[in-house]
Simulated assay, not measured.
Amino acid sequence: MASHSERNDPRKGRKQQFHGRPQRRPETASDDWIWGWHAVEAALENAARGAPLRLLATAERARQLEQRFGKLTTLETADNQLIARNLPQGAVHQGVALRAGPLESAELEDFVAERGAVLLMLDQVTDPQNVGAILRSAAAFGAKGVILQERHAPRFTGALAKAAAGAVERIPVARVINLSRAIETLVELGWRAVGLTGAAERDLAQVLDGAPVVLVLGSEGEGMRRLVAEHCDELAKIPMPGGFESLNVSTAAAVALYEAARPR
């Protein structure tokens, strides 16, 4: 593990009814809803969510839900238009929408450092579609969890939950106030922090050694902030022999997770 001074050496890189019940009047569209079949199914499976607060489904989806979960006392049958009126404009709900309780945040100490373990840290990645896709990749490649900054990350509902296709319910997520301090804590817990930047001198494959690693990705526009990069043990790049200068952050996360998963 690098010393504190080595971790701060900028030279390491240049950078989840009753059928006879009358329909309620729709509420004002809210960002508290989860929609889409896979996202709603996963949320209902997640015991940590508790009982659903409200569940809307078309008649066909209601039958599927009750076949899957048994009788759901909060289930209301509704047509597609009524479901849509409770959701943001353009939401592709696939005939089902759920208003569920919030998920509790994980703690950094929950992430046990063991050989081959991988965490993702997102530095001000705020687009819900990107964060949802990253969570989906994290679940697919067996990451232990994801770390987000409390004030610069989207809520785990809506478009994010739809893009994650159920991964919101399966990947532990820690929300922290300060990412630099979170890196220091994780290093003390036995993790090694590797920041991804196209300006780094070494490829990611050269940097990974099987040790428990936190892969740090910055926003598409700004990349990692300077202080976050300085707290990483090392910086690395994803080689792009095609000459194109950058990748979408969710694509970069999937490539990095694949690379980190290969030794496992």
Rank of each mutant, 00 (worst) to 15 (best):
Met1Asp: 01
Ser5Met: 07
Gly13Tyr: 10
Arg14Phe: 12
His19Leu: 11
Glu27Ile: 10
Glu27Leu: 13
Ile34Val: 15
His38Gly: 00
Ala42Met: 05
Leu44Gly: 04
Ala51His: 03
Ala57Phe: 01
Arg61Trp: 00
Leu65Thr: 02
Gly70His: 05
Thr73Gln: 09
Thr73Tyr: 09
Asp79Leu: 05
Ile83Tyr: 03
Pro88Glu: 12
Val92Asp: 06
His93Val: 01
His93Lys: 00
Leu98Glu: 05
Phe111Val: 13
Ala113Gln: 01
Gly116Tyr: 13
Ala117Trp: 02
Val118Gln: 14
Met121Arg: 07
Met121Gln: 10
Leu122Ala: 06
Val125Cys: 02
Val131Asp: 03
Ile134Ser: 12
Arg136Asn: 08
Arg136Ser: 07
Ser137Asn: 12
Ala139Arg: 11
Phe141Lys: 08
Lys144Leu: 09
Val146Arg: 02
Gln149Met: 13
Glu150Pro: 04
Arg151Asn: 10
Pro154Val: 14
Gly158Gln: 03
Ala165Ser: 15
Pro172Cys: 06
Pro172Val: 11
Pro172Asn: 09
Pro172Gln: 11
Ala182Val: 12
Glu184Trp: 01
Val187Lys: 00
Arg192Thr: 15
Arg192Trp: 07
Ala193Ile: 07
Thr197His: 14
Ala200Leu: 05
Glu201Gly: 03
Ala205Asn: 04
Gln206Trp: 05
Leu208Phe: 13
Leu208Cys: 11
Gly210Met: 04
Val213Pro: 02
Gly218Thr: 14
Gly221Asn: 14
Gly223Cys: 12
Gly223His: 10
Arg226Lys: 11
Val228Ala: 14
His231Arg: 09
Cys232Trp: 09
Glu234Asp: 15
Glu234Trp: 15
Met240Gly: 05
Phe244Pro: 02
Val249Ile: 12
Val249Ala: 14
Ser250Gln: 12
Ala253Tyr: 02
